[in-house]
Structure formats: structure tokens, C-alpha cells
Amino acid sequence: MTIKIQIPTPMRQHADGKTTVEVAGATVQAALADLSAKYPAIAERVFKDGKVRQFINVYLNNEDIRYLDSLATPVKDGDELAIIPAVAGG
């Protein structure tokens, strides 16, 4: 089972410059845990006290996981997760 995770641009330097990383897991939480194991520096930036930081959202196939089942949302082969922080500049 392969889930693709889109890495936000400012964090790509912590994922060997990769745009997407392939991970395994049956839920959003498990997929993100696999990403964290591969790239701990990304985990530090995405999570705080075990929760996704408040200015970062996680989207499963372009849907916000908060109206799905949050981190417990099941994922299936071929799904795509995107981690997208709020953009402040302008």
C-alpha cells in the first residue's frame, strides 16, 4: 500500500529536496508516522505535542481531514496526502 505525501515547499530541504514522498499506512496518522520516521526534521516542523500545528493543514485527495475523520481517516493505495501551511507573504 503506497500513499503519496506532498511535502510543502519550505520543508523540502528536510526531505532530500523531494516534492513527494511515498509512505505506507492504513490511516492518515500511520502515513504521517511513516513520513516522520523517514524524515524526523519534517515531523518536528509539522507536529507540536503530537498534533498537527495550527497553521498547517493536511488534505487527503484535496479534502480537509478535519471534516473527514481527522488523523484516524483511513487511507488506501494510491491516495494522496498534502501538507499545506498557511502562506503569510504578500
Binding site: 497553521f55 480537509d64 498557511a86 507573504g89
Partner: peptide
């Protein structure tokens, strides 16, 4: 908002659509 080569935009119609705090709970 934009930075680097990426950016995002969203329209807020109070009462009809989620507001900015619904989408981004807090500022970085």
C-alpha cells in the same frame, strides 16, 4: 498569500463559507 513560487487564495462570504479561522486555526 504568496511566498517563493507558491501562493493561495480563498474567498470568505461570512455565514455562507468557512472563515479564515475555520481553515487556519492560528498564525505561524
Amino acid at each position: 498569500g504568496c511566498i517563493g513560487s507558491h501562493g493561495q487564495t480563498m474567498t470568505i462570504l461570512p455565514g455562507e463559507t468557512p472563515c479564515l479561522r475555520c481553515v487556519f486555526e492560528a498564525a505561524p
